[in-house]
């Protein structure tokens, strides 16, 4: 077969269902599902009709597909002088559909954490086996601020296949061999695009940027945060913090984890990597009883500084992608955009 699939073109709404039908039938499709009033979650979907396209973004980020909430990293049998280690089963290939540009950027933000000096084979394997289908935004959410970090809400390079809604269908751009493969297997053929994709993206980015409810200017926040490390602001802010893990768990770039062993009665068992939150009291608690971050003030400051400063200084990438989920989900209205404005305001 020498027919080359064009890498950009449009498809119709019914084509989208056909694109996803194969993976859905194979049990390999993860897509947004309306789970409860006000709650949209990425979940396995057997029937493409069950997924929702009526969402600005999910309540919890899709990072769990590449970095699961709990993941077995090894197992052992035996104990004492006779012990064998074994590998967990391979992850399944997945098609992850409906990932917004803020969450696509988050993949790049996390890449140096899990790649980098000691490459993490679990992350790497899941990235290799997951075909990410991005979905550009048509309206900014009430708490979105991706453009403040220079992220376009229309498209992102991390997707294997990038979809941009162009009523009544979608502009499709395949950005990797995996994206090509998904297209080819589905048998969906692309129609010629009406507009040059790059032109469309630029125009729409400008259009959407004007409609953001509020935008921050994070210039200088890194320096401000460093200067204000000892300021009583953090203690004041932490008064209302509950010390739960909501912000960290809905966030697409939070990556802190714990490593926990579980044993069966016969001594065999497994080691798991599980999400953890730097806001939990025992996060840095040492066996001796000493805790370098003993109160919510230090812990909250640490998380916010990680997002606004530390990640950038370590990896040259902004730690926050402006998805706004923490703003929506925090039960006590700790708002990172407000923190940015406060920090900058205190410097003048």
């Amino acid at each position: 077969m020498s027919v080359t699939t064009p890498t950009a073109g449009t498809i119709s709404r019914p084509d989208l269902a056909r694109l996803l039908a194969g993976p859905a039938a194979d049990g390999r499709l993860v897509a947004p599902v309306r789970t409860a009033p006000g709650v949209v979650l990425f979940a396995p979907v057997r029937d493409p009709g069950a997924l929702t396209l009526e969402y600005v973004n999910s309540t919890v980020s899709p990072k769990g597909c590449l970095f699961p909430q709990s993941e077995k990293i090894l197992g052992w049998r035996g104990g004492g002088p006779k012990l064998d280690l074994y590998s967990p089963p391979e992850p399944q290939p997945l098609v992850l559909f409906g990932v917004r540009p803020c969450d696509l950027r988050a993949i790049t933000v996390l890449e140096p954490v899990f790649g980098g000096g000691y490459p993490d084979p679990y992350w790497r394997r899941r990235r290799e086996l997951t075909t990410v289908v991005g979905l550009g935004c048509t309206e900014p959410g009430p708490y979105c601020f991706c453009v403040a970090w220079g992220i376009s809400p229309v498209a992102a390079p991390e997707a294997d296949l990038m979809l941009t809604p162009v009523d009544p269908g979608y502009l499709v751009q395949s950005q990797s061999p995996k994206g090509e493969e998904l297209l080819r297997r589905s048998g969906v053929s692309l129609q010629a695009a009406g507009t040059e994709p790059a032109v469309l993206r630029e125009r729409r980015t400008a259009e959407l940027t004007a409609r953001f409810r509020r935008l921050i200017d994070p210039t200088g926040v890194e320096a401000a945060a460093e200067r204000l490390f000892d300021h009583p602001y953090w203690r004041e802010l932490a008064r209302r913090c509950l010390g739960c893990g909501i912000c960290t768990y809905v966030c697409p770039t939070c990556h802190c984890f714990n490593v926990i062993d579980r044993t069966a009665p016969d001594g065999s068992g497994g080691r798991y990597r599980c999400w953890d939150s730097c806001l939990f009291e025992r996060f840095t608690l040492q066996a001796s009883g000493h805790n370098p971050r003993p109160t919510r003030a230090e812990r909250l400051r640490n998380r916010l500084l990680h997002k606004l400063s530390y990640h950038r200084s370590r990896y040259g990438l902004e730690g926050c992608t402006g998805c706004g989920r923490c703003v929506a989900a925090c039960p006590v209205n700790i708002d990172i955009t407000e923190v940015v404005a406060d920090l900058k305001g205190m410097m003048t």
Binding site: V113, F257, N258, D276, F283, P292
Partner: peptide, 12 residues
């Protein structure tokens, strides 16, 4: 300090 991964990933 409390460490869980030793390789700069767990954020602790």
């Amino acid at each position: 300090l409390k460490m869980k991964c030793g390789i700069g990933k767990c954020g602790r």
